[in-house]
Simulated scan of single mutants.
Amino acid sequence: MKPIFRQANDKYFVEQLTRRNMETYYKKLGISWDKKAFDKNWCEFESYEIVINDCPVGVLRLSHDDAAYYIRDLQIEPSWQRQGVGVQAIDHTFELAQQARVQLLRLRVFCENPAVNLYKRRGFRICKTEGGAHYMEREV
């Protein structure tokens, strides 16, 4: 099943999915949800709904500069996790970076997040670890 990536317009869906998926990590690290930062980033990031059978199942949020594409947020509904949706989102980002002729993909992920293994399988390597998060990158 191949998802469709379309511009996200439902800010509420994106925020609620992100908050729900990240809640455990935030609590463990003593981080509070920052609504103002989310609102600011909503305007700055490219946000895509990940849609299967006309139903949103996740969100992919990106930014980029001349050096890299950044996966700022990749959230998948729990019932759709471990079904290849995350892989397809990473591959979609890779294609966007290729089209933009950018040489690197970068991201930050909490060390305890099982998605670390997904990123490693997709060719990302850990560049540094700081504040409970891995900073990872891969060449395009």
Rank of each mutant, 00 (worst) to 15 (best):
D34K: 02
F13S: 13
I31Q: 00
V59G: 00
G30L: 09
I31K: 12
E49P: 02
L107A: 07
V14A: 15
Y26Q: 13
F45H: 14
E44Q: 10
V85L: 00
L96R: 13
A100M: 07
D66V: 05
Y25W: 15
G30D: 07
L17Y: 10
F38P: 02
V57H: 01
E77G: 01
I31V: 15
V102F: 06
V14D: 05
F110S: 00
D10C: 12
V51D: 06
K35L: 02
C55Y: 10
Q103P: 01
V85R: 00
Q88V: 02
I50M: 10
L104M: 11
L74F: 10
L104N: 08
E23Y: 11
A67P: 00
V59P: 00
D91V: 04
L62R: 09
R108F: 07
K27N: 15
S47M: 08
T24F: 15
K27G: 06
H64N: 09
K11P: 06
N41Y: 05
G84L: 03
K28C: 10
H92E: 12
D66S: 11
F13P: 14
T18I: 04
Q98Y: 02
I31W: 15
L29H: 14
L96Y: 09
L107Q: 11
R19H: 10
F38E: 11
Y25P: 11
E77H: 09
R101T: 05
T93H: 03
L74W: 06
Q99S: 09
N21Y: 12
G86Q: 06
V57A: 06
G86E: 03
E46P: 01
D10S: 08
L62K: 09
K35I: 02
D34H: 04
N113W: 13
G58K: 11
Q83R: 13
E23W: 05
V87S: 11
Q16L: 12
D54F: 02
I50H: 04
S63H: 03
Y48C: 13
S47G: 07
L107G: 03
K11S: 13
G30K: 13
F45Q: 14
L60R: 04
S47Q: 11
L29M: 14
R108W: 05
